[in-house]
């Protein structure tokens, strides 16, 4: 089976500084792969199987070797993709990148908490069925078996190929590639392409960003001081809330 694994390359939200006025400073944020992308690579490798082929796909000035060091055999990078707030636009570029790879059976996209629309929109653009919120996947006959959780129910979804999986990580990456894998990655081919080569028209942005502010939700009531006093204050507050 041939799997394309899509990975993001963006400034880490953990490195963003939120100022008291709600403005966000990105200066110290390093570019990293998406939080869910290691899990997406793992799922792509599992679905492709030992004889399969995993192709990495990324947009912008990503480090294309990121997926190669994790087991992808080659990578495609769309160099001039715009960063867009519209996840449909991101997905349209990703879908065009997928079409540039022949005979794809499955596309695996990180199903990120911050941008939970991308994976589903890639499927919509390709016209392929989508299973989002997936935590693990395996080949099953001519298709894929994907597992996800909904409340206290575990769902096993079987879908025929070609299909798109949105994979959500269950934790931080447990093992990062070692020196050997990184050196091997540098020998693997990276194809760079452009929107024009992919035949993607750049449309005028329909979404205009207008700044950030702090959420107006009631601020935390914080008690500071001696434990006996703060404990009493908290218990009184919880009694007043009627939750004790």
């Amino acid at each position: 089976m041939r799997a394309v694994v899509v990975y993001a390359w963006a400034r880490s939200a953990a490195g963003a500084i939120v100022h008291a006025d709600g403005g966000v400073e990105w200066r110290h944020a390093r570019p990293v792969a998406g939080e869910d992308d290691p899990a997406a690579v793992a799922a792509a490798l599992a679905v492709a199987g030992p004889d399969g082929d995993v192709v990495g796909l990324t947009l912008g000035d990503a480090d294309a070797s990121w997926a190669l060091a994790r087991g992808a055999a080659r990578a495609v990078r769309v160099t001039d993709a715009p960063a867009s707030d519209d996840e449909g636009v991101t997905a349209a570029v990703i879908a065009a990148g997928v079409r540039s790879v022949a005979d794809v059976d499955v596309v695996v996209v990180g199903d990120s908490e911050e941008h939970p629309g991308v994976a589903a929109a890639v499927g919509a653009r390709l016209g392929w069925p989508v299973v989002a919120g997936v935590v693990s996947a395996a080949p099953s006959g001519a298709g894929i078996e994907a597992v996800r959780r909904a409340g206290d129910v575990q769902e096993t979804v079987v879908v025929t190929c070609p299909a798109v999986l949105g994979v959500a990580a269950e934790g931080a990456e447990s093992r990062t590639p070692g020196m050997k894998e990184q050196l091997a990655a540098r020998k693997r081919p990276v194809v760079t392409t452009t929107l024009a080569e992919l035949g993607v028209d750049t449309l005028p942005a329909a979404v205009v960003a207008g700044g950030t502010r702090l959420p107006e939700q009631a601020r935390t009531r914080v008690f500071e001081g001696e434990p006996e006093q703060t404990a009493r204050q908290l218990v009184a507050a919880l009694r007043a809330e009627g939750v004790l």
Partner: peptide, 12 residues
């Protein structure tokens, strides 16, 4: 945005 740390306003 940013895991709930800020609210972003967009015009569509």
């Amino acid at each position: 945005s940013l895991g709930g740390a800020v609210v972003e306003t967009l015009t569509v």
